[in-house]
Design a protein around this nucleic acid. Sequence first.
DNA 1: TTGACAGCGTTCGCAAAGCGAACATTGATG
DNA 2: CATCAATGTTCGCTTTGCGAACGCTGTCAA
Lengths: 259, 259
Amino acid sequence: MMTAADQDRNISSSFAKGLAVLAVFDAETPCMTLAEIARRSGQDRATARRGALTLVQAGYLRQDGRMLSLTPRVLALAGGFLQANQFGRRVQPVLNRHAQQMEIEVTLAMLDQGRVLLLAQSTVEHGHITYGFTAGSHIPLAHTSLGRMLLAGLPAEEAAKVLAETDLPRHTEASLTDPAAILERVAQAREQGYCLTDSEFESGITGYAVPVSRPGQTPIVAGCSAPRGQQPEADAERLLRGLQLCAAELRHAEAVDHL
Amino acid sequence: MMTAADQDRNISSSFAKGLAVLAVFDAETPCMTLAEIARRSGQDRATARRGALTLVQAGYLRQDGRMLSLTPRVLALAGGFLQANQFGRRVQPVLNRHAQQMEIEVTLAMLDQGRVLLLAQSTVEHGHITYGFTAGSHIPLAHTSLGRMLLAGLPAEEAAKVLAETDLPRHTEASLTDPAAILERVAQAREQGYCLTDSEFESGITGYAVPVSRPGQTPIVAGCSAPRGQQPEADAERLLRGLQLCAAELRHAEAVDHL
DNA sequence: TTGACAGCGTTCGCAAAGCGAACATTGATG
DNA sequence: CATCAATGTTCGCTTTGCGAACGCTGTCAA
């Protein structure tokens, strides 16, 4: 009874469903019940159960009573990527150095499924403590300087499409909620080669971002954020200059060319 | 012809095989052909192919010609774990602070499949560049201070068993190759509450490690490494004291209690 | 040049793997 | 205590995906 919507024989649907189970843990939910996993992954409870139990056996999930949570082993998966791309040698040291010079936390990010995916982060002591994001965290696309700079790295129409598929929760009173207004800021960022946002994600915090990837490549950006200071213009100039230097060095090291 | 060794109906074997494909990328191999994946994962080429193609469709792998490589999306899997355990807020700042005070890179690690899994690493600027390991990297168990301190966190017999299942490649001339000799160092580490190794993994580099987890918990350790200096004893005392402070703070913050 | 060969990606018939309706089990509510 | 809702688990039927077999490409020796 082969349907017309012929499932691709090259794709393993069981595997895809299992991956969906694993991916469900991306939110800040530390642990979940089977039913919750099933709901979030849009699968039958029995299906989710098989996926989860398989993950437990493989050591990626731990089962405490009826609660399931990720084990540190998932880090090894990311480790493969980081090692392969030499992040430890080519990216992290550069971020660290500029972060120290700028006296601020510097973040490298790219697009992933309509959100901003943090690739790497460098922290300096005395830095302002943010939400506690790390490499692998997702942050909103529309209301962060990183996100808008990433959109600016796409062709205008594509950026509009990505943005249209994103929902725009209002994080602060300053959050822009009109897609057109956001796209205008994106266009502005594209033109001037940097992006600033103020208080649209965290109140009182200004975000700064510059492109790292070369035009045409998958967009990669570097950015930082800090409480708004006494001389916003001077701060912006100093931080953007620092970020530009950092970005130039990453480009020169070809550290992010094939992401 | 159902065998007596009845495969558990609760486990999805296709999913498990797919995961094995993903895990194969943990080595420093940036990209692989289908056949290579099949060989490394011990699967039939066709099976590996389905797994890989599924991963491509899910966005975790990218296909360039006949080469397959991980995409940054795998970071999101790790991000779930890091966010859930508040690494960004509870662990990373502590590591960074002590690293800055000690003027050296500090690493947090645990056991995973007979190897040392790096959980987090301080990101302060410093002089000495190591292999470029990052969170999620695996390093050897037997010839690093982190690894031996981890073994010391296990009951003696269990440590012996884990070590027996590990192979002991000789990284440098100084590498101990006799399991008994290694276990003796482990026992010593267990007694004195810290572990030093010298040149057994990288020539001329001394490794320092102390336990972080409480006795009985899954072992977690903190450590650092540096070129051997002029006054080894003074260095050791200073660094171990720093690591102990760092470990105590992590314990107090209960940052790593349920890993 | 040509034949043999080794290694690769891909296909397809048949066995077995896993989907989900249905069944237990738990725990909250009137 | 009965009712109900929500969760975890089982099992028959169908679909999925296993792997022998195939075709293709590049390499070597005759």
